[in-house]
């Protein structure tokens, strides 16, 4: 469809461990508008990272994408050959991983790691690439790109490494950037730097972004749309402003209540009771019903389908 950079429909991904089949993504439908940021929120094990890996077809063994479609720039990524897929990864889709400490190769100079992507995808000479790499380092906020170019990752701080990773991710001018918890390992101040850098890049480079995080506070100030994942399912999708004004799903409400906002004079935090279920022991029906205050009989038996409520809001709940 026109206007969307990526459309995922009916995606299923499972892990095959011994004789068990553990579904990590179940019937996922989402799309991102061109030039917009979709924030994917979820707790650990909710399938948000697996969504990113499924898009890139990097689901680690024994995991497998079972069915679905991932439409990106008019192509179904799931039906491409490996060679074709390689020309998209890092080129049309950039990826920023969570751990800036481990995502860079410790024995290769920063500049070469940036150049590598460019040489692979653009077929440029080493000389041309050096110029572009220096330009990229400048773009991500280094004042002395020449010095950084020849440094090794261990000589950089966490925030600086994350900026190098961003430089690598945007080096080929991708149309989609996937950022998986890019600021989780960083301090508040560094986090703000990285977020403002990402925001600026999206605006100036006309990129779209899938932003994965467990931090609702960040999404409040960052994304355009928000998707809430739980146990491998998308439970709610909405424009950010509408979502925070009026969260619909009981889980979304619980999440917003349980974050620590700066409001004094409350003795206790409201909490979502119970524990996040294990993917191998999911309940019947709606996966959230054991923790839900509004659970009805039908929730225990049948899983609710994703409903379109209009105004770009979707929800997976029988209350609506």
């Amino acid at each position: 469809m026109e206007g969307y950079i990526i459309e995922i429909s009916n995606l299923y991904t499972s892990f095959f461990i011994d004789t068990q089949v553990i579904p990590v993504i179940n019937d996922l439908n989402l799309r991102i508008k061109k030039g917009k940021v979709l924030g994917l929120i979820g707790e650990s094990g909710s399938g948000k990272t697996m969504t990113a890996l499924s898009i890139l077809r990097l689901v680690p063994s024994p995991g497998k994408i079972i069915s679905g479609r991932v439409c990106f720039e008019g192509k179904d990524l799931l039906s491409l050959t490996n060679r074709e897929m390689e020309s998209i990864r890092g080129n049309r889709i950039g990826m920023i991983f969570q751990e800036p400490m481990t995502a860079l190769n410790p024995v290769i100079r920063v500049g070469e790691q940036i150049s590598e992507t460019l040489i692979t995808h653009k077929g440029l000479s080493k000389k041309e690439v050096r110029e572009i790499s220096l330009e990229l380092l400048k773009k991500v906020g280094f004042e002395d790109p020449g010095k950084r170019y020849i440094q090794y990752p261990h000589q950089l701080s966490g925030g600086q490494r994350q900026r190098v990773l961003i430089a690598i991710a945007i080096s080929c001018n991708p149309s989609l950037l996937i950022a998986d918890e890019p600021t989780t390992a960083l301090d508040v101040a560094t986090e703000a730097q990285i977020l403002s850098l990402l925001k600026e890049l999206i605006e100036t480079q006309n990129m779209s972004m899938l932003f994965i995080t467990h931090n609702l506070n960040i999404m409040k100030r960052f994304g355009d749309h928000i998707g809430i994942m739980y146990a491998g399912r998308l439970l709610e999708m909405a424009p950010v402003v509408d979502f925070f004004n009026e969260p619909l799903h009981p889980y979304s409400k619980g999440l917003i209540d349980s974050i620590f906002t700066l409001r004094p004079n409350e003795k206790r935090l409201k909490v979502i009771p119970g524990f996040v279920p294990r993917l191998s022991e999911l309940p019947e029906g709606c996966k959230f019903h054991p923790r839900c205050n509004y659970a009805m009989d039908i929730c225990k038996k049948d899983e609710p389908p994703m409903q379109d409520l209009g105004n770009e809001r979707w929800i997976r709940c029988y209350l609506f």
Partner: peptide, 14 residues
């Protein structure tokens, strides 16, 4: 810890 669990643990501390 996960967001929904953080709140539980903080309440436990209280």
């Amino acid at each position: 810890l996960d967001v929904s669990i953080q709140a539980q643990i903080v309440n436990l501390f209280l």
